Amino acid sequence: MGGLVGQSRGKAGLRAWGCAMAGLFLVAGCADDGTPKGAASSGPPGTSATPSGTPPSAGGSGTGGTGASTPTARPGAATAIPMPPLDESKQPRTAAAARDLLGRIIIAEQDLGPQVLRSTPFESDPGRWPVLDEACVWQTEGLPGDVLATSTRHFHIPAKDGRGRVRISATVTIHHNREESGWETARAMEEVLRCPDQKLREGEQLKSLWGGALYLGEQLNAWTEDAFSESGDYVNAQDGGPYPYTWSQAQFGPVTMAISAKAGQGVTNEDLTVFVAQGTSVMMIQAKQQLGKAAG
Rank of each mutant, 00 (worst) to 15 (best):
M1D: 11
G2I: 10
G2K: 05
G3S: 15
R9K: 12
R9T: 13
K11W: 12
A12I: 14
L14Y: 12
R15I: 08
R15A: 15
C19V: 12
C19F: 12
A20R: 11
A20E: 13
M21Q: 13
L24N: 00
V27C: 12
T35K: 12
K37V: 06
A40V: 09
A40Y: 02
S42T: 14
G43R: 00
P44G: 02
P44H: 05
A49L: 11
T50H: 12
G53D: 03
G53L: 03
P55V: 09
S57G: 13
G65M: 08
T66A: 10
T70S: 13
P71H: 05
R74W: 02
G76E: 12
A77D: 05
A78T: 04
A80M: 11
L86K: 07
E88D: 13
E88Q: 15
P92F: 13
R93N: 15
A97D: 15
A98D: 10
R99N: 12
G103P: 06
R104L: 14
I105T: 04
A108L: 13
Q110T: 12
D111P: 02
L112R: 03
G113Y: 04
R118K: 14
D125R: 08
G127C: 05
G127K: 13
P130L: 08
L132R: 07
A135H: 11
V137D: 09
Q139P: 02
D146G: 09
T150V: 14
A159P: 08
D161L: 10
D161C: 06
D161E: 15
G162E: 08
R163S: 10
R165K: 13
V166Y: 00
R167G: 12
T171H: 06
T171K: 08
I174V: 15
I174W: 07
A186V: 15
A188C: 02
L193D: 03
Q198M: 07
Q198D: 04
L200F: 00
L200Q: 15
R201S: 13
Q205A: 04
L206M: 04
S208T: 11
L209M: 10
L214N: 06
Y215C: 03
Q219N: 14
W223V: 11
F228H: 07
F228M: 03
F228P: 00
E230K: 14
S231N: 09
D233N: 09
D233M: 06
V235P: 05
D239P: 02
G241V: 10
A250P: 00
V255N: 03
T256W: 01
M257F: 10
A258Q: 08
A258G: 04
A258V: 09
A258E: 04
A263N: 01
G264Y: 00
T268R: 01
N269C: 01
E270C: 01
D271A: 10
L272C: 07
T273H: 00
V274A: 11
V274D: 00
F275V: 07
V276K: 00
V276M: 02
V276E: 00
Q278G: 05
T280Y: 02
S281M: 05
A287S: 14
G292E: 08
G292W: 00
A294Y: 04
A294N: 03
